[in-house]
Design a protein around this nucleic acid. Structure first.
Lengths: 218, 218
DNA sequence: CAGAAAAATGAACGTCGTTCAGACCACTCG
DNA sequence: CGAGTGGTCTGAACGACGTTCATTTTTCTG
């Protein structure tokens, strides 16, 4: 048991992740500098490379931390909600987390590996975990979808919501104005839920599904 | 009329844009190197900075070229189609253009200005032009939406489709498998079109709207 | 405590975008 | 036509960056 070394090593890794996260949160991923992170974390420049393979590796760990926090937020949003209400809470919870942690959230999707290769599996599984929150309410709304098709549909809706949030938050191009995002997300979920149920009783315009709406399949 | 100078200047600009586009298409935006572009275009390194403000500026012009080509593709896709059929053709046309020009298409959305500022207006209007293709078919399907709300809804659906395409094409994270993208897009458009019409006569599962389906509002 | 192994250090390296002083060239006007 | 003028081209030089590495320092082991 080499406690002393391992303790220091883990402390350094945690310091570096924290320092990098702070720099990204402040100035965005593009403003991340190895020298800044090292000095913030209180180690020499080369120390980064004893704790992590390279800056990419460090960013991946920051992203894993961000993913965890987002997962917590989504879990809280979906708690005690079902069907359309859960989908709405997840969508708006996603949008709010993204807005409140814009630079860290951007880093999740802006970051590219230096060699263009894929992200490591351990980070990918962190992303996949987010889908879990979606499948249950979606299954309630789409009772006709089997496991495989349900997974695809969950990815589709996640990607669609992500696109709306993403384009709205980066203020360029075709994004929705910030105050229009959440209403549009709710309208979108209404269409998804209402369309799947083929003719919601209370119409499909807006707010058709209250927070307490029970899923169609139960 | 300083023809000689202006001719050479425009020729150099065109060469540089073409060279940069080729490099981006081959290796992605991250692989773009000022020295490569200059040597490809047959000018010295510094020549770039007599024709463009900086590399960002050059990339913006490559992106404008890409936007134009995508606009042409979308116009062709929507031609002679209305309502849901037009939306479907636009979505799949978008997905195919993205897949066939992956690196150039990625550059459209990956690129960030060096100072973090917004893209110039002349490029933004190129993006806005894409929305025009959406509004007409969307208006046919959503006859209840006014001009302002229609614009918002168009942005929402564009962003949603973009999100699905974008996450599918970058093979990491939560993207749809490539062969599942177009079916999911079509299912999505069905939900959008069917949901808006509140109970399509032929059910909302899949392929509910044939190519010749007339918009609901006429 | 001595020897070995791991980690920390920061100067140095290679690469990048950008700049700039000088060479070059196209245009103007006497 | 020909000298002056001002834009353009050139590539060496610059500063910033991520990464490496020889060296020193710290930690573990017997």
């Amino acid at each position: 048991m080499a406690t002393r070394r391992e303790t220091r090593r883990e402390a350094l890794r945690a310091n570096l992740i924290e320092a990098a996260a702070r720099r990204i949160a402040e100035g965005g991923l593009a403003a991340l500098r190895a020298r800044d992170v090292a000095s913030d974390a209180g180690c020499a420049l080369g120390g980064i490379y004893t704790a992590f393979k390279d800056l990419d590796d460090l960013v991946l760990h920051v992203n894993a931390r961000t993913l965890e926090r987002m997962g917590d937020r989504l879990a809280e949003a979906a708690r005690n909600r079902r069907g359309g209400a859960a989908l709405k809470a997840l969508a708006t919870g996603y949008a709010r987390f993204a807005r409140q942690n814009r630079n860290l959230w951007d880093a999740l999707f802006d970051h590219r590996m230096a060699d263009g290769g894929p992200s490591p599996d351990w980070l990918l599984s962190g992303h996949l975990a987010l889908l879990e929150y979606l499948t249950a309410p979606l299954a309630a709304i789409h009772p006709e979808l089997s496991g495989k098709a349900l997974q695809l549909r969950a990815r589709s809706y996640f990607a669609a919501v992500h696109g709306m949030v993403s384009m709205s938050l980066q203020r360029r191009y075709l994004g929705l104005p910030e105050d229009a995002l959440e209403p549009e997300l709710e309208a979108f979920v209404d269409v998804v839920a209402g369309g799947a149920r083929r003719g919601a009783r209370r119409g499909a315009r807006r707010g058709a599904l209250g927070d307490r709406t029970r899923p169609a399949g139960t």
